[in-house]
């Protein structure tokens, strides 16, 4: 469907070290506008590392490889510039910022100006109305923090949205809330909108009940070991474990 369009994100041969230890060893990944990718992988395999490297956080040293976003070198941009260029992230464990309200962060995420009615609508949608005037993430429960991250992304409307375990620690009702919001964000409200793309880290795949994902990848041993239908991959991992899954020849690259 996208052979003749330029990719939104194109990662080639990416190596990333943390404190001198190589965590990612040659990642290749291409995401086109309109696609939703799922990233699977065992604890400590480097999923968060990949996301944070794309976000540009310090401490993630790119030792080799390239990352292009809409054809431009993403790695040359600062964290804030990447966000303004269209990359958004829902963190696995966002930090509390004393004195800065969730509403304020939604405002800045939207580029400084946002219609209060839009803030209200988003807050309704992801059930953060009582948290709007609270210091962001300060004392938020696990599920509240995830919904607050979603509210910020909905305000930002990034072209490429990265979700780091959006459903972990979230109860069943709220998985539906978060999942629908992801789906809503990625598919866009209006047909005229440019389709957005997403990369979702998940362990359980519960969120995929609500989000139509196109492709799944398994991060193993610092590389994307296999790709395939995300729900099939999760089934395989559930029945055989990661070791066996990545040995399976079917989806080997």
């Amino acid at each position: 469907m996208h052979e003749d369009t330029a990719p939104l994100l194109s990662i080639e041969g990416l190596h990333v070290s943390i404190g001198g230890r190589e965590v990612l060893r040659g990642i290749d990944l291409t995401i086109h506008a309109g696609e939703t990718h799922v990233l699977l992988g065992p604890n400590g395999s480097g999923k968060t590392t990949l996301l944070n490297t794309l976000v540009g956080l310090p401490g993630y040293d790119v030792t080799a490889g390239t990352v292009a976003f809409r054809g431009n070198n993403l790695l040359a941009l600062g964290v804030d510039e990447r966000a303004r260029a269209g990359i958004g992230v829902a963190f696995q464990r966002p930090p509390a910022v004393r004195g800065v309200k969730l509403r304020q962060v939604m405002e800045v995420a939207a580029g400084g100006a946002i219609d209060p009615e839009r803030v209200a609508a988003i807050a309704e949608e992801v059930d953060v109305v009582p948290m709007l005037e609270r210091d962001v993430n300060l004392g938020f429960s696990g599920g509240e923090a995830k919904r607050s991250e979603m509210a910020q992304l909905l305000a930002q409307e990034p072209e490429l949205a990265l979700f780091d375990e959006p459903e972990s620690g979230v109860d069943l009702d709220n998985i539906a809330v978060v999942g629908s919001a992801i789906s809503h964000l990625l598919k866009g409200e209006r047909a005229s909108e440019r389709p957005r793309a997403g990369l979702i880290i998940t362990h359980t795949g519960h969120i995929l009940q609500f989000v139509n994902a196109d492709i799944g990848h398994v991060l193993f041993d610092g590389q994307l070991a296999c790709e395939g239908n995300p729900l099939d991959l999760i089934d395989d991992i559930v029945s055989h474990g990661y070791e066996k899954c990545v040995e399976c020849a079917l989806c080997r690259r």
Binding site: G78, V79, A83, F91, P95, V100, V108, G111, Q156
Partner: peptide
């Protein structure tokens, strides 16, 4: 915290 806000475009 600074990077968190920067990741929202600030």
């Amino acid at each position: 915290e600074v990077y968190y806000l920067m990741s929202r475009g600030v």
